[in-house]
Structure formats: C-alpha cells, structure tokens
Amino acid sequence: MDPREEFLSSTMGAMDLVYNIARRMVPRVEDTQDLVQDTYLAAFAAWVKGRKPDRVEPWLATICLNLARSRYRRESRGLQEVSMELARGVADPSDPEREALASLDAAALRQAMWALDGGQRVALALVDIAGLSTSEAAQAMGTPRGTVLSRLHRGRRSLARLLGDQVTEREA
C-alpha cells in the first residue's frame, strides 16, 4: 500500500480531535487550520521513517502540542488576556443546566477557554474535548498524571465559575 494512503487511512479519523486541540492552542481559525495541516505533515514525515504508533490520537496530539509550542509561543503569551463576551442565545426553560449552556454560544465558550491558564486549557482540550485519557494527556503534555488531574480539575472549576458567573450576570 502506498505510504500516503496507509497514513491517511490510519489517521484521518482523528482529524476532528486534532482540530479541536489546535483550536485551543492558537486563536485564529486560519492558524488553526495551518497547525492541523502541519501536524499531519510532521506526522507523515515520522510515519515514513517507521514511527507508527499503537494509537494515533495521543500521538497526533503530542505532535500538535509540540508544534504549537515551538511556533506560536510568543503569540500565546498574549492570549491569556482574551476578554469574555457573551453572545445571545436562546435558553430552554425546561432544563436549568441546558438553559445555562444554551445561553452561552460557541464563541463565549471558546473565549472562556482562552481565559483559563494555558496548562488548564490544554488539559481540558485533551481530555474533555478530544477524549484522551488522563494518562495519554500526561504523555502528550510531558507532565506527571497528577499534574494533569490537578490542571483538569482546576480548569473545569474555573470554567464553571467563569461561565456560571456570566450566566448569572446576564440573568440579573
């Protein structure tokens, strides 16, 4: 089988996952698409050298994180200051939890993610959004699993408080 076809058939199923990780690493959609594409090119370069992982998802996630760190480090420092803006949404009054989420549109959620500490945001992106296990996330981030668990919990808590406060403010 042509190595390109073999690579694509093995990895394209994880593209949405890589996109979602990249989306939390760089703020602009155009940069996100470049990062995803560069991740695949770098992964392919490794693939043809014989580095074929057991599971492609954490492997691609690791490549994506490393590329983002090396290329977008300078930009990402300034990204902690992204302000929160809530867009309008239609709430479903039948379910308070759905109501809270429905009142926050995708842009508000995205911005709330950017308001988190970088390590927390990456932990949430890897585990809650991309669906990696905490062990896989620890490997991708190059940190102990305990650190990932801590960042994950603090990120979740911050997100809940941040968006919960915003919802409360809107309702007031």
Binding site: N20, R23, V36, Q37, R110, I129, R157, L159, G164
Partner: peptide
C-alpha cells in the same frame, strides 16, 4: 463544579471546517 465545567468544555467542541480534510489529503 467539575461536572459543570466538563459539560461546558464538551460543549466547546467544534467540527473541523469542511474543506480541511480535503486540504490535508
């Protein structure tokens, strides 16, 4: 709080732009 935060994070999941798959190929 963690449950609520996880639900919010999950809700932030996006679908990749339609052309990206073709672009990567």
């Amino acid at each position: 709080l963690a449950r609520e935060g996880r639900r919010m994070a999950e809700a932030a999941r996006e679908i990749a732009p339609p052309g990206l798959r073709d672009d990567i190929r």
